[in-house]
Amino acid sequence: MEILLRYLHFISVITLSGTLIAEFFLLKSSLEKKEIRLLGQIDAVYGISALILLGVGLTLWLGGYGKPTEFYSENPTFHLKLGLFVLIGLISIYPTVFFIKNGKGDATDIVKIPSLVHWSLRAELILLALIPLFAGLMAKGIRIF
């Protein structure tokens, strides 16, 4: 069971990263509504992968698989890693709402994309890039503070 959970955790990390990178590269200063709908679909996969990642991660943490629960619970590096994940989720709310609201209507209508959507995706990518570093430190039992 543990190996299946770890596999699912790994696949959801790859899916989450891939969809976020796809959103970043598909985003332009203005888009047709059909392109915004596509971004919305990619964003939905991103959200589903984030929920799977969170659910599997919590199961691995609290379910007693692998290392004892205390290993994670008492490790500030783990809490920083989890906090970054939550922060990424909060930052992703604005682009998600924008894609949902602006994907409706005539497919060929042009919509100017707010700079906050661009900056949100950039921030998410930067924070996401830090999580594997903290995961590696955490796995080795290194506490950053």
Rank of each mutant, 00 (worst) to 15 (best):
G105Y: 10
K81W: 04
F71T: 05
N102G: 13
N75K: 04
I100H: 03
L82G: 02
I113K: 13
D109A: 15
G83C: 07
S92H: 13
N75W: 01
V86N: 06
K112P: 11
S115N: 12
I93Q: 11
N102D: 09
T108H: 05
D106G: 13
E70T: 11
G83F: 10
G103P: 13
I91E: 00
G89T: 00
F98Y: 13
D109S: 15
H79F: 09
K104M: 11
F78I: 06
V86F: 13
I88S: 03
G89V: 01
G105M: 15
G103M: 12
N75I: 01
Y72W: 06
D109G: 13
F78H: 11
G105Q: 15
S115T: 14
T69P: 08
K112V: 08
D106A: 14
I100K: 07
G103T: 11
F85A: 13
E70D: 07
T69V: 13
D106R: 14
F99V: 11
P76E: 00
T69N: 09
G103Q: 14
F98L: 11
F71A: 05
I88H: 00
T69G: 07
S73G: 09
K81M: 04
V111Y: 14
P76G: 01
G89Y: 03
L90D: 00
T96F: 11
K104L: 12
I91G: 06
L87Y: 03
Y72K: 03
S92C: 09
T96R: 08
G89M: 04
F98T: 10
